[in-house]
């Protein structure tokens, strides 16, 4: 099935305190598909996500949403874009002073004229999707980390977004709950045609849900394609990532040796 790309990334660089964290990232995120961005911790995948949702300023001409330059968005365009997206953060990012159901109602309360009761029912529907129907009246502090994350997903879904960004959905979850979340992600794409971007380092879940996989390493894209293509890739770093091999000789060994041996370079 050919679907038009929603987001195109054309050579995105990113720096953090003078250090290059993204280096010429280039790939496309097609509509109505699940794109999984994979890589070890610190490979820059979360930074990439922050660019895509407009939390980190993007240089002009690097990221295009429906053909429009994200880097050139003014405040209004950015708000319009953000009302089309939902974002789940690593920690869930629930508001501590509100109940779980109220948390989910926040975007609805701000952006719509819906009455409180309707908002509450909508919040319960979303909570049920993530398996937390009974926890609407709990405070976030009463939930476990995994439950908070699921509640965060429910909040990201509150406005029925076109594009859903998810940062590490299954980290810290037990295998059964994680599988349930995977199923939900696939279901959202199938039933609502949502475009979903998942950042993860969980191999199994990635191959399970992805229509497209992007593998990152040290700020670069080292492979991109359908899951089968990634599995068949012969790039040694991809193979290494897939087979969960640990590096015997870390790439920064020279730095390490010069530090520990107090060699003056």
């Amino acid at each position: 099935m050919l679907t038009p790309s929603i987001i195109e990334i054309r050579g995105l660089d990113s720096y953090y305190r003078g250090r290059r964290v993204l280096d010429g990232i280039r790939f496309e995120i097609p509509g109505n598909q699940v794109t999984v961005i994979m890589g070890v911790s610190g490979c820059g995948k979360t930074t990439l996500l922050r660019h895509l949702v407009g939390l980190k300023p993007t240089e002009r001409g690097r990221v295009f949403v429906d053909g429009e330059d994200l880097g050139g968005f003014g405040e209004q365009k950015l708000q319009a874009y953000r009302s089309r997206i939902g974002v789940l953060f690593q920690s869930g990012a629930l508001f501590n002073s509100l109940t779980v159901a109220e948390n989910i109602g926040v975007p609805l309360k701000v952006h719509t004229r819906l009455p409180e009761e309707t908002i509450r029912i909508m919040a319960l529907i979303k909570l049920n999707m993530v398996g937390l129907a009974k926890f609407g009246d709990f405070m976030p502090s009463q939930l476990s980390g995994g439950m908070r994350k699921r509640a965060g997903l429910a909040r990201a879904l509150a406005m029925d977004p076109e594009i859903l960004f998810v940062d590490e959905p299954s980290s810290g979850l037990d295998p059964i709950t994680a599988a349930g979340l995977d199923r939900l992600i696939v279901e959202l794409r199938e039933t609502l045609g949502m475009t979903i971007v998942v950042v993860t380092h969980e191999l199994e879940s990635a191959f399970h849900i992805a229509d497209q996989i992007v593998v990152m390493d040290e700020g670069r894209v080292i492979a991109a394609g359908a899951p089968e293509e990634i599995r068949a890739a012969d790039d040694p770093r991809v193979r290494q990532f897939l087979s969960r091999e640990t590096d015997l000789r870390p790439p920064d060994l020279d730095d390490y040796l010069s530090i520990i041996l107090a060699r003056n370079r």
């Binding site: 719509t112 819906l114 009761e117 309707t118 029912i121 909508m122 029925d160």
Partner: peptide, 11 residues
């Protein structure tokens, strides 16, 4: 229809 529509039907 979206979730708001479902919610109003529930009401």
């Amino acid at each position: 229809m979206d979730t708001a529509g479902v919610a109003v039907l529930v009401e």
